[in-house]
Design a protein around this nucleic acid. Structure first.
Lengths: 346, 346
DNA sequence: CTGAAAGCGCTTACAG
DNA sequence: CTGAAAGCGCTTACAG
């Protein structure tokens, strides 16, 4: 039959080694090869061995597209992060990607630019690829995004944030941003600072939670004053941090400490202080958040909160891996904590 | 027939809107829908319109896996970069990804960690997905990688580097790293510097080309001395930059300028100089490379070379887009140049 | 310019 | 524990 030129011409061979080739080599049916290779169901160990040998001998590699089409499930994991220009998310991504790749998954990255509409759009696009799982930064999404996540029934782990303590259905790996903000503020209070300003840019949900922690600490100490909240919706940058420092000190000369919502702003403030010869921490204490690269190299070195972002990426990916295997996750979330790192700037 | 329970059970419907649904709605055959939607071959404009209307009405979205299986080509573009921790590559990635996504392609990222073996391994993995195109950092790969790129016949554009002037087959978007190194060194010479050291870490191919440019400039000026080459294979970091500054000045007190192969090292050197109260540029001029975030915020601001990395990512992606459409690219490469940015540190 | 048939390389659902 | 049949949703190759 295969000598029939009519049929031969119809055949669009790709030259690729297929499941059928392995099956023939091993003397079993294709479906047995499929099952043996995926470790699914019980297959006679002897046959498994023969299949493995044949597969290795022929150098067989499964076709991801065929697999995805037949199973309605790809080996892609979508990961959504707000920005690539923020080292925090790059660390998260790097760790998650390494973990997922080791387990045979490909990562598809979506950058939301802190925009809920873009996030929704990206999620829709990624869902077309029927990802095996999703890793999403944060817990605050618009209603459509929430609905998409749920209706897709694709396993999903949220990173960096943590849900309410009694939430047992939302999978998360992160830390209590508000508690971290509280702890850092308490450190500043313990140093005897009286007028502690909070300076934030971007105003993403996590920055806002740090704000809440700062508020709580100041209220507990009886030092809260709404005037001390400096919230700027612009993007974070070193330059903006410098400007905010200058403005705050000009407007409120009695401020003796500033808690910047991230290290970018705080580093910029330290550099601006050097330029303007403002003695840190004598004139004003400076603190940041995240302990990014360079914070320990500043002059003076920056007091900040170390967030375990690489661990969050890795553990988040591992939790997702378990969910994708159908394992139940209980508790649904994992708190990886934080550490206040006291350096010379406070 | 479809009432036959036997057949009905055999059917694994996914509930998805398929090409066939659109075809039925539009009253044409599935293949016509396929052609109309892809804009392939000549299809009666009237039918195209009907197909488009039906497609929109039903909310049809093609299944990427089915498409990939049938056409042996995915809508993935693989992009290989050395590190995610280097802002240079993140900028490259961000720009390339945005351009590709706008054209309907998904980006798969591979991080090589400056390791040729890992690069080869990543390329193999990505090739399994039959990418529509590839974006690869640099031109230096091991033989196996070169062979894989060629034998795969997947369109490929190399970023950041440029091939020999007479090379007409290697597609590149980048800049002449050696000329940039030469220009920066000439600037330092023009400032009257006599003993200009070159300090590099990582020692990747582009750093080495900058070294060549530095050598050429010093030789032309009759100031070359191999002792002035400080090459450290360790990873670049702020801390290492500080150490290199200290070591160089201790070993060679007559050095009056240091050209660091990247801004990370140079920024670290500036911070170390602040700590050690080494006056910059009076005692020693400092220059970096790439003009990363923060270089203009340093004290003094850092003299460096601005590389158009966002443009390289975007133009590289666009060249790839053209190649994937089967367009010839002539010339094969695009030089986006550089700019010496003179600031206070020199 | 349009279409019926076959095929891409897997997995699912059923049966034994 | 194993397999023959059908199907996943597209595109290619051929024909008209």
């Amino acid at each position: 039959m295969s000598d029939n030129p009519q049929l031969a011409r119809r055949h669009r061979s790709t030259g690729r080694i297929t499941l059928a080739d392995v099956a023939q080599e091993a003397g079993v049916s294709p479906i047995t090869v499929s099952r043996a290779l995926r470790g699914e169901r019980a297959v006679d160990p002897l046959l498994v061995e023969r299949v493995l040998a044949a597969s290795t001998k022929l150098g067989y590699v499964p076709d991801p597209a065929a697999r995805a089409l037949a199973s309605q499930r790809s080996n892609h994991v979508a990961i959504l992060i707000p920005k690539l220009s923020n080292a925090l998310f790059v660390d998260l991504l790097d760790a998650a990607q390494q973990t997922l790749r080791a387990a045979g998954f490909q990562t598809l990255i979506g950058v939301t630019h802190y925009d809920e509409e873009q996030e929704e759009q990206l999620l829709r696009e990624h869902l077309l690829h029927r990802p095996a799982g999703m890793l999403i930064t944060g817990l605050n999404h618009n209603a459509a995004t929430q609905a998409l996540i749920e209706s897709s029934r694709v396993p999903c782990v949220h990173l960096m944030d943590l849900p309410a303590a009694d939430d047992t259905s939302t999978h998360c790996v992160g830390l209590r941003q508000d508690q971290a903000g509280l702890a850092l503020t308490q450190h500043l209070l313990a140093q005897g600072r009286k007028r502690i300003a909070f300076a934030a840019a971007q105003l993403d949900p996590r920055a806002i939670q740090r704000l809440y922690g700062w508020r709580t600490a100041l209220k507990q100490a009886g030092q809260y004053d709404p005037e001390l909240e400096h919230l700027n919706p612009a993007s974070s940058s070193l330059a903006l941090g410098g400007q905010m420092l200058t403005n705050i000190l000009a407007q409120q000369p009695d401020v003796d400490a500033i808690f910047f919502c991230n290290d970018d702003l705080a580093q910029g403030a330290l550099l601006a202080a050097l330029r303007s010869q403002i003695p840190i921490p004598q004139r004003v204490a400076i603190a940041g958040f995240n302990d990014l690269t360079g914070s320990d190299q500043m002059l003076p070195p920056l007091t900040t909160v170390r967030t375990p972002r690489a661990a969050i990426g890795r553990e988040g990916a591992e939790m997702l891996l378990r969910l994708m295997q159908g394992q139940e996750q209980s508790p649904a979330w994992l708190d990886l904590g934080f550490e206040v790192v006291v350096r010379g700037s406070s």
